[in-house]
Write a protein that binds this DNA or RNA. Structure first.
Length: 852
RNA sequence: GCGGGCGUGGCGGAAUGGUAGACGCAGGGGUCUCAAACACCCCCGCCGCAAGGCGUGUCGGUUCGACUCCGACCGCCCGCACCA
């Protein structure tokens, strides 16, 4: 009997697949297509268990759909631009490109042994000039269509390193490298006009029925459609040109509860007041915060009374003070609000701090109402509100809007929280924005024939600032319009741009235009997209926008406006975090491979104690990653694949532990042994016996259940059923008529069902069982409905919801018969103790409940 | 702070209105063996000798029946627009 040697089996069958080009996808209009895509990886240099899990899940779907007769497209590429390459350049003095391509080679080498059914001929990296050149062409087409604009935006500025920082590089308000306090600074930046599509992107969410509901909700909330009132206050004491202050509110009903007005520190009025040193000092303090919404919202609410007042629109005698407040966002609405403390928590915190009046204007039905430290945001009727008194909130909103509109102070407005997408990055390792600045002609798009605008190779990272900006010659270029000496845009694009259209490029990865319509029409949309829930908003929303932009620019058919028909958000792979204490109590993260865990706790090899932190998402920054290469080398790819699928439901986080690998490996060896025995067993007596038909029935139920598990993305359940089927087939064969044949049938089904999860082992099983050709090309097994029905069922009997007895009946027994059996049952009679049941609930083939 | 999610034995989980704990891990016992490894068999939520009772983060509600539906709370995780 042959032993299970994973390495031999896996290299043998990978070679066979390559030889037969089983996974090469070619356009074939005579067959239905299926496009399965996992979010492509960032080439960090090593794969981790998260990658193994993600790509194995996609591979299960790809191989299953292939068995179901689909022409499957399953490509792979690299999300290769981004900051880590520049950080490596600074720390290790390697060129970001060299670093990135080395990482890609290393990761590809680790990925290929997994035996994924990928069409590697379509592979590309977003940092390939062929790819980013096409991205520049897209950018120019979008510019042409008015989808690109330039405006000013606030960034995190590190005054020491003279560079823009990402939010994650700002730690406690300081630059991560320099430690200098970060400043907010305005820069002119390139934007995609995604907000023009707010309504379309919002409405289309209803049609995304293949997406998880939680992602659809998050996207709706992110777009944040609101109906409100925009109106102008008359001001007193404001500088020239600020006779009016325009504010936006979603709670116009609370206008009589207003106690102050507030403007953003970035508001033009705040800037106009900066001549006053006190204002300047306060605004400067506000600017010492980072730009992230999270930071603004969690910071202590602070304000500065400008001395300016505004007049209440419904009462000329009523003046409200105007504050500059650190929690007002310039990006939302008009950058100015009125505060109604009783009905908004932030306004209330602010009012309590500055001693401003708090007037209740909405009272929950029939209650005498006061506000303490918690604002009331629920429904109710208006009070203390003049002509609004007694109205419901919604009616009062409409009434206020109508009155303001009639008096000409403003109007009802629909607004969206979604802002335009700022894509400018002051960095080297990204796709250059193909624009040219000319003294005479202004901003001019580069000519398409000059694409790609390539990144220069000879750059240095020693100097602070953007290497493209201080490169001696790269910027110099003739103006595409007039030919005069001009200078290139030195900003590169956000890496989210790269990942917003790669799915379309995979349909024609070598085309001389961004896409080829024939291929896009055949392969789009992605039928199943798989990735982490951390991308639920930004990446997916940007991709939805980009598919529309590519429709407008003729690069995708209108039918591909929603590029991902179905989405599955898999959970993350987590691991405990390990750290040692460094200088000044600062934590120094340690890799799991450095850590020795035993009864005494955790330590390094030299005895340094380890602080064990909670299990969190595996990340490079916390070094809590695990290298799957070792597992593959030790046990083989099928074991690694089996293990990541079996332990947790795919949508949930899985904590990586070493314990499962051994068990997975043992099980696969058992599967191999059981099938090998069955393949070599002598023919038994023909005919039909109870044992044989029971086994056949169990095999067909397993076919049904495993199929359901895969279809429903419940791979862990499918695997549980495969464990059961294996145990069943492992039972020693008797000499009952037909049993040997039934076991053979079961073993063939097992091979076919193992195929998506452990494709190499499945080929070996298929070969032992004398299957024809490659199992990778065999059709999926069908469960015979006649074998699925169970003859007898056991019904639990409850008395008042507590299980007291069981009765066995033929399946499909009618209610009356069951009732009689139940009432005659000894255990039931004991539980009843002479009482007469009030009611008998019989759920056929499921349960009986006797109610007293 | 705002938005979204999750919470079941020692552990990963199953059951999505109908016998809570399928399947696996860890643990315990046994068979085989000179011995070991492998393999195979049995036990395994908690309390209790047992009968029985208790049990799905906490509290309350709906229902004949709730892990499942509703409300509040607690804890953990994800996102918050320059991480990818």
């Amino acid at each position: 009997m042959s032993r299970y040697v994973a390495s031999e089996i896996e290299s043998k069958w990978q070679a066979a697949w390559a030889e037969a080009e089983v996974f090469r996808a070619t356009r074939d209009p005579s067959r239905p297509k299926y496009y399965v895509l996992e979010m492509f990886p960032y080439p960090s240099g090593r794969i981790h268990m998260g990658h193994v899990r993600n790509y194995t899940m996609g591979d299960v779907v790809a191989r299953y759909k292939s068995a179901r007769g689909f022409n499957v497209l399953h490509p792979m590429g690299w999300d290769a631009f981004g900051m880590p390459a520049e950080n490596a350049a600074m720390e290790k003095r390697v060129h970001p490109g060299a670093w990135t391509y080395q990482n890609i080679d290393a990761m590809r080498a680790q990925l290929r042994p997994l035996g994924l059914s990928i069409d590697w001929s379509r592979e590309f990296a977003t940092c390939d000039p062929e790819y980013y050149g096409q991205q520049q062409a897209l950018f120019l087409d979008m510019y042409e269509k008015g989808l690109v604009t330039r405006k000013s935006a606030v960034v995190n500025w590190d005054p020491v390193d003279m560079t823009v920082l990402a939010n994650e590089q700002v730690i406690d308000g300081k630059g991560w490298r320099s430690g200098a306090p970060v400043e907010r600074r305005e820069l002119t930046q390139w934007f995609f006009r995604i907000s023009d599509y707010s309504e379309e992107l919002l409405e289309a969410i209803d049609g995304l029925t293949g997406w998880p509901e939680k992602v659809r909700i998050m996207q709706r909330n992110w777009i944040g459609k609101s109906r409100g009132l925009q109106f102008r206050f008359a001001t007193t004491g404001a500088p020239e040109g600020f006779g009016e202050l325009e504010v936006y509110t979603t709670r116009p009903d609370t206008l009589y509860g207003a106690s102050f007005a507030a403007i953003s520190p970035d508001h033009p009025l705040a800037k106009a007041l900066e001549g006053d040193p006190e204002v300047a000092a306060f605004v400067a303090e506000c600017r010492r915060m980072g730009t992230s919404e999270e930071e603004l919202e969690t910071a202590e609410k602070k304000g500065f009374d400008t001395g300016i007042t505004v007049t209440h629109p419904f009462d000329p005698a009523w003046k409200l003070p105007v504050y500059i407040a650190n929690f007002i966002l310039m990006d939302y609405g008009t950058g100015a609000i009125f505060g109604c403390p009783a009905h908004d928590q932030r306004d209330l915190d602010f009012a309590r701090k500055y001693g401003l009046p708090v007037t209740v204007v909405v009272s929950p039905e029939g209650a005498d109402f006061e506000v303490g430290t918690e604002a009331y945001t629920g429904p109710g009727r208006l009070v203390n509100s003049g002509f609004l008194d007694g109205m419901e909130v919604e009616d009062a909103k409409a009434a206020v809007i109508a009155k303001i509109e009639a008096e000409g102070h403003g109007r009802g407005e629909t607004k969206y929280r979604l802002r335009d997408w700022g894509v400018s990055r002051q960095r080297y390792w990204g796709c250059p924005i193909p624009m040219v600045h000319c003294e005479k002609c202004g901003v001019v798009p580069e000519r398409k024939e000059n694409l790609p605008v390539r990144l220069p190779e000879d750059v240095t990272f020693e100097k602070p600032g953007n290497p493209l900006d201080h490169h001696p010659s790269w910027k110099d270029t003739p103006c595409p319009a007039c030919g005069a000496p001009a200078r290139r845009e030195t900003d590169t694009m956000d890496t989210f741009v790269d990942s917003s259209w790669y799915y379309a490029r995979f349909t024609a990865p070598h085309a001389a235009t961004p896409t080829s319509m024939e291929d896009a029409e055949y392969w789009m949309n992605v039928d199943q997209y798989i990735g982490g829930v951390e991308h639920a908003i930004l990446h997916l929303l940007y991709s939805r926008f980009f598919a529309r932009a590519m429709r407008e620019t003729g690069h995708l058919p209108a039918s591909a406006a929603e590029p991902f028909s179905a989405l599955f958000t898999q959970g993350m792979v987590t691991h405990e975090t390990y750290a040692t204490e460094g200088e000044g109590g600062r934590l120094v993260w340690r890799e799991p491979s450095e850590v020795i865990r035993d009864e005494g706790g955790a330590r390094l090899a030299d005895g340094t104690p380890i602080i064990v932190g909670p299990s969190t998402k595996m990340s490079k920054s916390k070094k809590n990653t695990v290298d799957p290469e070792a597992i593959i080398a030790q046990y083989g790819a099928d074991t690694a694949r089996w293990f990541v699928l079996s332990d947790s439901p795919p949508e949930r986080d899985v904590e990586w532990t070493a314990s499962g690998a051994e068990a997975a490996s043992r099980h696969l060896a058992r599967v191999h042994r059981v099938v090998s025995e069955i393949a070599q067993a002598p023919e038994g007596p023909a005919g039909e016996s109870d044992e044989a038909s029971k086994l056949r029935s169990a095999v067909h139920r397993a076919i049904r259940d495993v199929t359901e598990g895969i279809e429903g993305f419940a791979f862990n359940k499918a695997i549980a059923k495969l464990y059961e089927l294996t145990s069943l087939l492992a039972k020693p064969a008797g000499d009952a008529p037909g049993l040997v044949a039934a076991r053979r049938e079961g073993a063939r089904a097992l091979a076919l069902l193992q195929r998506p999860m452990t494709p190499h082992l499945a080929e070996a099983m298929w070969e032992m069982l004398g299957g024809e050709g490659l199992i990778a090309r065999a059709p999926w097994p069908e469960a015979d409905p006649a074998l699925l029905v169970e003859a007898k069922v056991t019904l639990p009997v409850q008395v008042n919801g507590k299980r007291r007895a069981e009765i066995a009946v033929p399946s499909g027994t009618d209610k009356a018969t069951i009732e009689a059996l139940v009432l005659a049952d000894a255990a039931v009679r004991r539980a009843l103790n002479g009482a007469t049941p009030k009611k008998l609930i019989v759920v056929p083939d499921r349960i009986v409940n006797v109610v007293l």
